[in-house]
């Protein structure tokens, strides 16, 4: 399988000044050296609590904010080689931007309230100047149909506030897919939607990812959602990756205490089921650590990677 994206040692630091008059600045390591790869056609769920650096990772990957250090390699569609995005020239950058898109959390804020749905979806085509005017309109109608907004003619001249949350998120998805990207970053796209609508949006995304051959990074705080959506799950804590494994492997056989704590905290929609109470326990991690002393990410086989970081004093 070819990789679509590879991230090596990505770091993003923020400088925070201590006070109005203080010249001292502390550095907050929002993303502190994370590495992962995503294969073509696969999806990686990035799970962690708020403030752990998930969104910062997404913003660095989509080049919204410049990264502090590390390399991002992206698959070149021409010869299937991995290219470093730092080495891209202007033409290459344009090509990269066409291939990477992002869906945001808040369906109410992610569409410009003063634009019509048509203009919103047309925007990427206009920016990249793709196709004739008629082609573009045709493409917009087609994509709206694909995301289940039918008939498209009725929605084209409308404004976002006339649509419901679910419909807006569909429009967001249409906007990101109209460029036919190969990689999609989803930043909690369903967390603000109602339960009833959530599943239809998730199903739509999975179907489209399949049909259009899009790989995606799915950021969420909800392991149950990640399980539903993703082939692999990466657990993140305090700017670092804790554990990466294929979804079922991670859920059945978690090793890091934080992963175990996280899994044991998820409520189960079954009144007859009683969750076990998990207390943080480092014995297993330490014994594995003792056997693999040189690396900071231990490969346990089965694509199961484990961090040796014990997050001194941060776990409870």
């Amino acid at each position: 399988m070819t990789k679509i994206l590879e991230v090596k040692n990505l770091e993003k630091h923020f400088e925070v000044s201590k006070g109005i008059f203080s010249r001292n600045k502390t550095i907050v390591k929002a993303v502190d050296g994370i590495s992962f790869e995503i294969l073509k056609g696969e999806s990686l769920g990035l799970v962690g609590q708020s403030g752990c650096g998930k969104t910062t990772t997404a913003r660095a990957l989509s080049l919204l904010d410049p990264k502090t250090s590390g390399t991002i390699l992206f698959n070149d569609s021409n010869d299937n080689s991995m290219i470093n995005i730092d080495d891209l020239d202007e033409e290459g950058m344009k090509n990269f931007r066409r291939n990477i898109q992002m869906i945001f959390q808040d369906p109410y804020e992610s569409l410009n309230p003063r634009w019509t749905i048509k203009d919103i979806i047309l925007e990427p085509l206009n920016i990249h100047n793709i196709g004739s005017t008629e082609d573009r309109e045709e493409a917009v109608k087609e994509i709206l149909q694909t995301v289940g907004i039918t008939p498209p003619e009725n929605y084209l001249p409308r404004y976002p506030h006339e649509l419901s949350g679910g419909q807006r998120q569909r429009v967001s998805i249409a906007r990101t897919l109209i460029m036919k990207p190969r990689f999609l970053i989803c930043d909690e796209p369903t967390s603000m939607l109602d339960v009833s609508i959530r599943i239809s949006i998730m199903d739509l995304m999975m179907k489209l990812a399949d049909d259009l051959d899009v790989s995606y990074l799915y950021i969420t705080h909800d392991l149950a959602v990640a399980r539903y959506m993703c082939n692999n799950i990466a657990v993140m804590f305090n700017g670092k990756l804790v554990e990466i494994a294929p979804t079922e492997e991670l859920l059945q056989n978690p090793i890091h205490p934080y992963t175990k704590r996280l899994i044991s905290s998820i409520p189960i929609p079954d009144p007859t089921y009683t969750r076990e109470n998990y207390e943080i326990d480092f014995t297993e991690l330490r014994s594995i650590k003792a056997a693999n002393q040189d690396s900071s990410m231990i490969d346990l086989g089965n694509k199961h990677l484990l961090s040796t970081n014990e997050f001194e004093g941060l776990l409870y």
Binding site: L63, M102, N112
Partner: peptide
């Protein structure tokens, strides 16, 4: 800082635009 500005930027829209 609204997401719709971010998404225009990800797509490659210029500052002026």
């Amino acid at each position: 800082v609204k997401p719709f500005v971010d998404s225009a930027r990800i797509t490659g829209g210029s500052n002026m635009k």
